[in-house]
C-alpha cells in the first residue's frame, strides 16, 4: 500500500505556490520527518497527503489509490484509514476528554453506536489506556476547555491512538510540550506506528527532535523539496541552506551532543 506524490503543485488562493512540483514516496511502515522554515508548505503537504486538499497539478496516491478518482463513498472509506492530527487539536471546548478521545473510533462505529457513546461512553477502557500512554489518564472525565495547551495536544494524540489509522499524518504534534515530554510522546507515537505497521509523516519545528528520532528527513523550502535524505546524510550545510544562514548564526553545538543529535537552531527556529 504505497503512498506517493508525483510533481504535485498546490496554488495559494492569492497566487503563488504553496507546493511546487513535489515528488516523494512513503513506503509501508516508513517514518518520515518534514522540516523547514515557517511557510515552507509543511502543513499543505500533510493536507495533500491526507486527501483533504486537492492539488492543482500532479498525481496523488494515498494507500494505493488516487483519492480524487474515487466516488464520495470510496473516498470516505479511504479516509477512515488515515489520521491527520492538526497542530492545534480541534476539540470542542465543552466536550469531555473521554468523548474527544473516543471520537478517534468513530470511523469504525455505526452512527447508532456513536450516538449511544455520547449517552454513556462506549469504551472507557481504551480511552483511558490511550491517555495513559501520554500520562494524562487523570483527565479522562474533564472538559477539554479545562486543559492546558500541552494537555489538549496530548488528547489529540490519544485520539490518534484510539483510531484505526494506518497512515499517521502529524502536523507539529509536540509543539506545545516541553522537550522531555516531546521526546516521550514521539516515542509512543513511533512505537504505535511500528506495532501497527503504519506509515508516519511528521512535520517538526524542532530540528533536533527530527534528527534524533527519524531515519528519513525531508527538508522543505518555499514549497519545494530541498533534500530528502537518510538521517546520516543530513549535515550542517544542508540545514543552513534550508533555514538560511542569517537565521542560524548561533549554530554552535556542544561536541558531545553531535553524535546523537544536532541541537541546532534551538534559539531561532
Amino acid at each position: 500500500m504505497s503512498t506517493h506524490l508525483r510533481s504535485v503543485s498546490v496554488a495559494y488562493g492569492t497566487g503563488g505556490r504553496a507546493l511546487d512540483g513535489i515528488t516523494m514516496a512513503i513506503g509501508p511502515g516508513e517514518q518520515v520527518a518534514i522540516i523547514g522554515p515557517s511557510g515552507a508548505g509543511k502543513t499543505t503537504l500533510l493536507h495533500t497527503l491526507a486527501s483533504a486538499l486537492k492539488p492543482g497539478e500532479g498525481a496523488v496516491t494515498v494507500l494505493g489509490s488516487d483519492p480524487w478518482r474515487l466516488s464520495q463513498t470510496e473516498l470516505q472509506r479511504l479516509r477512515r484509514r488515515l489520521f491527520l492530527a492538526p497542530q492545534a487539536p480541534p476539540l470542542p471546548p465543552r466536550q469531555r476528554v473521554v468523548n474527544a478521545v473516543l471520537a478517534g473510533r468513530l470511523p469504525e462505529w455505526s452512527t447508532w453506536r456513536a450516538l449511544r457513546s455520547l449517552v454513556y461512553p462506549a469504551d472507557i477502557r481504551s480511552a483511558r489506556t490511550a491517555l495513559a500512554r501520554f500520562r494524562i489518564e487523570d483527565k479522562l472525565f474533564l472538559r477539554c476547555d479545562r486543559l492546558s495547551g500541552g494537555e489538549r495536544q496530548r488528547v489529540g494524540l490519544a485520539r490518534l491512538l484510539a483510531s484505526p489509522a494506518e497512515l499517521f499524518l502529524l502536523d507539529e504534534p509536540v509543539s506545545a510540550l516541553d522537550p522531555a515530554l516531546a521526546q516521550a510522546a514521539l516515542q509512543v507515537l513511533q512505537g504505535e506506528a511500528s506495532a501497527r505497521g503504519a506509515s508516519m509523516v511528521v512535520s517538526l519545528h524542532a530540528v533536533d527532535l527530527a534528527l534524533a528520532r527519524f531515519p528519513r528527513i525531508v527538508g522543505l523550502r518555499e514549497g519545494k523539496v530541498l533534500f530528502d535524505l537518510p538521517r546520516p546524510a543530513v549535515d550542517e550545510a544542508l540545514l543552513i541552506e534550508l533555514y538560511g544562514s542569517e537565521l542560524c548564526n548561533s549554530f554552535q553545538a556542544p561536541p558531545e551532543h553531535q553524535a546523537e543529535a544536532l541541537p541546532i537552531c534551538r534559539g531561532c527556529v
Binding site: 469531555r96 454513556y120 483511558r128
Partner: peptide, 18 residues
C-alpha cells in the same frame, strides 16, 4: 504508565445524567 486493575471504568457523570 501502567493501568492497574483497581481503576474502575465508570463514567462519574452517569448518576447526574440519570
Amino acid at each position: 504508565m501502567r493501568v492497574t486493575d483497581t481503576v474502575t471504568y465508570k463514567d462519574p457523570a452517569w448518576h447526574t445524567r440519570i
